[in-house]
Simulated assay, not measured.
Amino acid sequence: MKKAIVKTDKLCKSYILGKNGVNVLKNLNLEIFKGDFTVIMGPSGSGKSTLLYALSTMDRPTSGTVEILGRNIARIPDKEIPAIRKKDISFVFQSANLLPDLTAFENVAFCGYGGAPKAQVNEKTKALLTRFGLAAERDKYPSEMSGGQQQRVAIARALIGKPQVIFCDEPTGALNSAAGLEVLDILSQLVQAGQSIVMVTHDLKAAARASRLVYLSDGRIEGDLLLGSYDKNEQVRREETIFAFLQQHGW
């Protein structure tokens, strides 16, 4: 039986815009399981990114609960949240968000310092950059790298602390098709090695990598599709299955 590593119960998130309140997430119940590649899809304004931020400690719910690794986020003091982000969870965004004055090596290693011996962090950084085909870029600054290279550095940075969950918000959205495919291949390999990933995307090709697809509409979960382990030989069939599922739910 799969273990739930992130769980929500009647999750609601509201914002005040001017004099009006906007309910973005509405009594949402969801479990994210260890080892899954969970993709969240839905039309613009459905609450995808809001949900991702609520699941990942980036934002707190208005009501209801979010549990991550067995802990209720609402009961975790603000001062302890950075330690959770450093140790247990990581993020990959549409923009690589690398520090411009640090090299590729320094961007990755910087996030590993402070909890492990420097020499150990340096060795792990070297191994991650080599693993993702970035050995030749280790001393380059972000401005000297392509978008795909920057995003691979961002993934290496996300892994430096051995996170239990990686949250991705449109990680291929700013990349060309070739660079996007490289990033998706890396994410798929991580899942095959046991990593848990939660990703928001609009891209059908990216969604086909999922083992599970959650469809969000108007702040509610309207569909849940189990796809199983990814096989590149089934890419087209998986895209067709997902497209039919999305159309069925009004996408």
Score class of each variant (00 low, 15 high):
62 T>F: 03
63 S>L: 02
63 S>V: 04
64 G>F: 09
64 G>D: 07
64 G>I: 09
64 G>K: 08
65 T>K: 12
65 T>I: 07
65 T>D: 12
65 T>M: 04
66 V>N: 05
66 V>T: 03
67 E>R: 11
68 I>S: 06
68 I>T: 14
68 I>V: 14
68 I>W: 02
68 I>Q: 06
69 L>T: 03
69 L>D: 06
69 L>Y: 00
70 G>S: 06
70 G>F: 05
70 G>Y: 08
72 N>E: 13
73 I>F: 00
73 I>Y: 01
73 I>V: 14
73 I>G: 06
74 A>R: 14
75 R>W: 02
75 R>F: 12
75 R>Q: 15
76 I>N: 03
77 P>T: 00
77 P>A: 04
77 P>H: 08
77 P>D: 07
77 P>Q: 02
78 D>P: 00
78 D>H: 10
78 D>G: 10
78 D>K: 13
80 E>L: 00
81 I>P: 00
81 I>Y: 05
83 A>D: 14
83 A>P: 05
83 A>C: 03
84 I>C: 06
84 I>W: 02
85 R>S: 01
85 R>C: 08
86 K>N: 14
86 K>H: 11
86 K>Q: 13
87 K>F: 08
87 K>T: 12
88 D>Q: 14
89 I>M: 10
89 I>N: 02
90 S>N: 10
90 S>K: 07
90 S>H: 02
90 S>T: 03
90 S>P: 06
91 F>I: 00
91 F>R: 00
91 F>A: 01
92 V>M: 03
92 V>K: 01
92 V>R: 04
93 F>H: 05
93 F>A: 07
94 Q>Y: 04
94 Q>P: 09
94 Q>E: 05
95 S>W: 10
95 S>L: 10
95 S>A: 15
95 S>G: 15
96 A>Q: 05
96 A>P: 11
96 A>S: 15
98 L>Y: 09
98 L>E: 03
99 L>F: 14
99 L>G: 03
100 P>L: 06
101 D>F: 13
101 D>A: 14
101 D>R: 15
101 D>L: 14
101 D>C: 13
101 D>M: 13
102 L>C: 12
102 L>W: 08
103 T>K: 07
103 T>A: 10
103 T>I: 09
104 A>F: 11
105 F>C: 07
105 F>W: 12
105 F>R: 12
105 F>G: 11
105 F>I: 04
106 E>N: 12
107 N>Y: 08
107 N>L: 10
108 V>H: 11
108 V>I: 11
109 A>L: 09
109 A>H: 07
110 F>Q: 11
110 F>L: 13
110 F>C: 12
110 F>Y: 15
110 F>S: 10
110 F>P: 07
111 C>D: 13
111 C>V: 13
111 C>H: 15
112 G>R: 04
112 G>E: 05
112 G>W: 04
112 G>Y: 03
112 G>P: 01
113 Y>W: 11
114 G>T: 02
114 G>W: 02
115 G>D: 11
115 G>N: 13
115 G>P: 00
116 A>L: 13
117 P>D: 08
117 P>V: 01
